[in-house]
């Protein structure tokens, strides 16, 4: 799996005190790992710092609330890693 996944898995393990070996690419941050929205802010902060990006949490939340996206698209970790890679690529473009 990508180094992006490893980075965010390490961040989640450290931030939320979740055993690293239980965090899988298929894990849903909310449904599987039990991370709530406040704890996710700490994760977003660490991800923003680690990758030099700004996770568009408000936009994602709005899309989910409007039924235009599912939480799986953003909060299953392999999908989150892909979104991060896109944001990093867009930053460098």
């Amino acid at each position: 799996m990508s180094s992006t996944f490893d980075t965010i898995a390490n961040i989640i393990a450290e931030t939320c005190d979740i055993p690293r070996d239980t965090i899988k690419p298929e894990s849903h941050a909310i449904n599987d790992l039990g991370i709530d929205s406040l704890d996710f802010l700490d994760i977003a902060f660490a991800i923003d710092k680690a990758f030099g990006i700004k996770l568009p949490l408000e936009q994602w939340t709005q899309e989910v609330n409007d039924g235009k996206a599912t939480t799986e698209q953003y909060f299953v970790l392999k999908n989150l890693a892909a979104r991060i890679d896109e944001l990093v690529a867009a930053k460098g473009a």
Partner: peptide
């Protein structure tokens, strides 16, 4: 310290 999306530190 950080200006996030919908939050700040």
């Amino acid at each position: 310290a950080h200006d996030g999306s919908g939050y700040a530190m």
